[in-house]
Design a protein around this nucleic acid. Structure first.
Length: 499
RNA sequence: GGCGCGUUGGUCAAGCGGCUAAGACACCGCCCUUUCACGGCGGUAACAUGGGUUCGAUUCCCAUACGCGUCACCA
């Protein structure tokens, strides 16, 4: 065995700083749970001024999906989760794609075989399936250790015969193994319940569990964030680290993000991915903010704060705030976050984001969209809420005169007709069409007629919008529509009411 | 089934032996107001169950129930 090579690998490992990694497999898209894992991983690194590394785990060739890595890159970028090392940017401990590291795993596995901590297994599929069938749900788990007992002569014989083999980890038959997790604490299991798991598959590629241990060590990873579904395979890692004499990183297992109390969020159920949420009109920072709070909460003096920028999160994020129990993804609460982000956007940024949605609903080039935008800024959960609110600017909907009836305003069809008939000449007389003038004219009219403002405002607003609920009031709408169109709509209202 | 993990209001959650058990979303009411929204104020609503330990348990321990995960040459 080439000792020199192992020493060189060790020498590359950066020491003395926090290093975390996000290690997705390119098998699908970025789901909310993945995003959260990436976020926590990034936050832990940034909190300590450490390194955040991107590693692609593509050891399952059957599940490889073309283009999936691009989605990962794009999502991470859009969220602001920048990485210091990765397949595209390189780094001191590359390569950062597992299939490009396949020789490494073989060498370390051979080392374990040499030490007697792992062994070659020549059992074929049929035998393993028979084993499974015999076990049939009984408490005898996994592999029976058949090839453990092969003599060296038998091994050599099979090797020269070219029989394909895997390399399995030799788990002690007695005793217990204790594994420590930063979220779940100490977990102790009986070794006899542990399976002699496969380290190297017969295609020569490592299994997830083995590749993880090797890569995390070789890349100097100090904190491993992953889903709690890996919790039960974690104790076996300790045995591996022990065998190599390596330091075990801090493990942080996170409970899943659920769609309801029984099921995880999943593409299969049609749950939205990060990309889907953006397409649904959500803002990336709002999604990130909300997702951060699904399974983590700030403690101490920040414990009542819920709005955080990425930088603020990096500052206050701590592992102790991660929750053990699963969290249900609540679209209503995401909407609340999004509405808040939308509202606090500077007006020009809001307009920039809203413009495409405004254009889709208001085609008339005469109308100034930049005047409509501020009207909807405090009235949207997502961008998608814009169009249905502003479409009346484009064309007056055919509405029922019932809309003129309002209990609190004390309006009905008759007095609305009168109000419109009174308002018409007053507005016609205005030669400068602007909010303040329109406002004063209508308020003065109300005063003159000795009625509450609403008695005039409500009918006018209904007449110019054809809706019971509108962004902005009569004055704003009239001013945006322009004199000619406003008067035309008021006349239409009068006609409708006269019928 | 074995093993592991979890369980505070409908939801996210604080709490880490002593509290009238925070806060947020949603919901309801009031105020503001020319509608709606925003904003302000207030309200309804929770420690899964049973045993211990303790002067005292949401908090510690043990059962039970329910839920989740895992028992692959998938990650």
């Amino acid at each position: 065995m080439n000792k020199q090579w192992f020493n060189e690998m060790e020498a590359r490992i950066p020491k003395g700083r926090v290093r975390t990694r996000f290690a997705p497999s390119p098998t699908g898209y970025m789901h909310v749970g993945n995003l959260r894992t990436a976020l926590y991983t990034w936050l832990i690194a940034r909190h300590s001024g450490g390194d955040f590394i991107l590693r692609i785990e593509d050891t399952d060739q059957e599940r490889f999906v073309e283009g999936a890595t691009d989605v990962i890159y794009a999502t991470l970028r859009k969220c602001g989760l920048n990485w210091d090392e990765g397949p595209d940017v390189g780094g001191p401990v590359g390569p950062y794609v597992q299939t490009q590291r396949r020789d490494f795993y073989g060498k370390y596995a051979a080392l374990l075989v040499e030490q007697g901590v792992a062994y070659r297994c020549f059992c074929d599929k049929e035998r393993l399936e028979a084993l499974h069938a015999a076990a049939d749900g009984k408490n005898v788990g996994g592999y029976d250790g058949h090839c453990r007992r092969l003599t060296q002569a038998e091994i050599n014989e099979k090797l020269t015969a070219g029989i394909p083999y895997v390399i399995r980890q030799k788990i002690p038959e007695t005793g217990t193994t204790t594994f420590h997790d930063a979220v779940f604490g100490d977990i102790t299991v009986e070794n006899e319940t542990l399976d002699d798991q496969i380290l190297i598959k017969s295609d020569g590629l490592p299994t997830y569990n083995f590749a993880n241990v090797i890569d995390d060590h070789l890349m100097g990873i100090t904190h491993v964030v992953r889903g709690s579904e890996y919790l039960s395979s974690a104790p076996k890692y300790n045995l591996l680290y022990q065998a190599f004499g390596w330091e075990v990183p801090t493990y942080i297992h996170c409970s899943p993000v659920m769609r309801d109390s029984h099921n995880k969020m999943s593409k299969r159920h049609g749950d939205p991915s990060y990309e889907d949420l953006l397409a649904m009109g959500f803002l990336s920072p709002a999604v990130v903010n909300y997702v951060a709070l699904l399974g983590w909460s700030p403690r101490g003096e920040d414990c009542e704060q819920e709005f955080f920028t990425l930088d603020e999160l990096a500052k206050v994020f701590d592992i102790g705030g991660i929750s053990k129990s699963p969290a249900i993804f609540d679209l209503e609460k995401l909407k609340y976050f999004n509405a808040n982000y939308l509202r606090t956007l500077p007006p020009d940024e809001f307009f920039a984001g809203a413009e495409p949605y405004l254009k889709a609903a208001v085609k008339n080039p005469e109308l100034d969209l930049s005047l409509i935008a501020p009207l909807v800024q405090s009235r949207c959960d997502t961008w998608e809420d814009i169009a249905p609110q502003v479409d009346f600017f484009d064309t007056l909907p055919d509405y029922s005169t019932e809309l003129y009836i309002h209990k609190k305003m004390k309006t009905n069809q008759e007095n609305s007709l009168a109000a419109l008939q009174a308002a018409l000449p007053v507005l016609e007389a205005l030669d400068h069409w602007a909010s303040s003038g329109i406002h004063d004219a209508l308020i003065n009219l109300a005063a003159q007629l000795e009625v509450k403002n609403g008695r005039i405002m409500w009918p006018v607003r209904v007449a110019v919008s054809g809706k019971a609920v509108t962004p902005g009031g009569a004055v704003e709408i009239c001013s945006i529509l322009g004199k000619e169109e406003s008067l035309r709509r008021i006349r239409t209202g009068i006609e409708k009411l006269q019928k």
